[in-house]
């Protein structure tokens, strides 16, 4: 049995995987990595399935000690600082941990979330078939805390190497969105304001959603609509006109109108922004959205093929 012991973990450090899909009709959001591409790349770099469980590390950081080794791990996501066995490194690399090695991951020059994957995999408690932590209940893999011992499955060792962080895996300040589905509740001028104006990330965020600072984009009249499905990436506007982008642990239904919905791929880049960073929404048609999704999926697949051992 190969084990890692957690020496220190800040808030918002959780076990996540590719998400618990297909259960929104029962009130269960997918949860899973906030930056899905980063977790998938961390896994692929080790030869793991892209949706395998890993650790989502917040800017509050994580320190582990390797109780038994060797095992290779990978780090992707934000540009975090990684300290390993006396070396100070950046993120985006494959490392091998030996028994007695400490690994510290902490806030670096950019990004909000770092992903740590283990070659072979991590033994994680499952809820409804997935290790993704559902924040509001803690069901699934759960919050990572000091003293906890993580058990690895089929640990493997591989060559240490640096990984290139592709441009499309960096924080993204221009976000593509399709208007609606409740855009008709907003005045034409409000929609123009939404798509033309800079917004900023605020400190009011969690894994359910991220409140934005920017122009108020209040709906006209309809402050509430019959409760209906919400998606990761829905931009919901309450009566006060403040826009909130819903993230992985979102409630599955709600009655606030959605002015726009982000393309799935752009959410990965949004979550890597930091409070006070500026961002802007660009309107695309549904046809353009599909074309962009396919083009980006192709770029991801090409890169994934290159880094998979």
């Amino acid at each position: 049995m190969t084990r890692m012991q957690v020496l220190a973990a800040g808030p918002h450090v959780t076990l996540q995987d590719g998400g618990r899909r297909g259960m929104m009709r029962f009130g269960v959001p997918a949860s899973g990595a906030l930056d899905r591409k980063a977790l998938a790349l961390a896994n692929l770099a080790l030869g793991n399935p892209p949706g395998a469980a890993g650790i989502e590390v917040s800017v509050a950081g994580l320190t582990l000690t390797c109780l038994d080794g060797p095992v290779s791990v990978s780090l992707t996501g934000g540009g975090f600082i990684v300290e390993h066995a006396g070396r100070r490194l950046g993120g985006w690399r494959v490392l091998t941990l030996r028994a007695g090695d400490d690994l510290t991951i902490r806030r670096g020059p950019w990004g909000s979330w770092c992903y740590l994957a283990f070659a072979g995999g991590l033994k994680a408690p499952l809820w409804l078939g997935s290790a993704a932590t559902h924040g509001p209940t803690g069901f699934g893999g759960g919050q990572i805390g000091a003293g906890q011992v993580l058990k690895l499955v089929n640990p493997r060792q591989m060559a240490e190497r640096a990984l290139t962080c592709p441009v499309w895996a960096r924080p993204r300040s221009v976000l593509h969105a399709v208007a609606g589905p409740q855009d008709r509740y907003f005045a034409a001028e409000t929609l123009r304001t939404f798509f033309d104006s800079p917004f900023h990330v605020t400190d009011a965020w969690d894994r359910m959603g991220l409140r934005l600072r920017g122009p108020l984009v209040a709906p006209e009249g309809a402050l509430s609509i019959p409760s209906q499905a919400i998606l990761r990436g829905s931009v919901q506007v309450a009566g006060d006109g403040v826009a909130t982008v819903l993230l992985s642990d979102h409630q599955t239904t709600g009655g606030y109108p959605k002015i726009a919905t982000l393309l799935a791929d752009d959410i990965d880049g949004l979550v890597q922004l930091r409070p006070r960073d500026a961002l802007r929404f660009t309107a695309v048609t549904p046809e353009e959205a599909i074309a962009l999704a396919r083009q980006r999926a192709a770029a991801f697949a090409a890169f994934a093929a290159r880094i998979t051992p």
């Binding site: 297909g22 259960m23 009709r25 019959p226 209906q228 998606l231 239904t253 549904p286 046809e287 396919r294």
Partner: peptide, 21 residues
């Protein structure tokens, strides 16, 4: 991918690699 029924709406989620709106 999945369907989410609500009071007066059905949201139908799909894989954009396989189909389109």
């Amino acid at each position: 991918a999945e369907a989410i029924p609500a009071f007066v709406t059905l949201l139908v989620d799909f894989d954009p690699a396989a189909t389109d709106h």
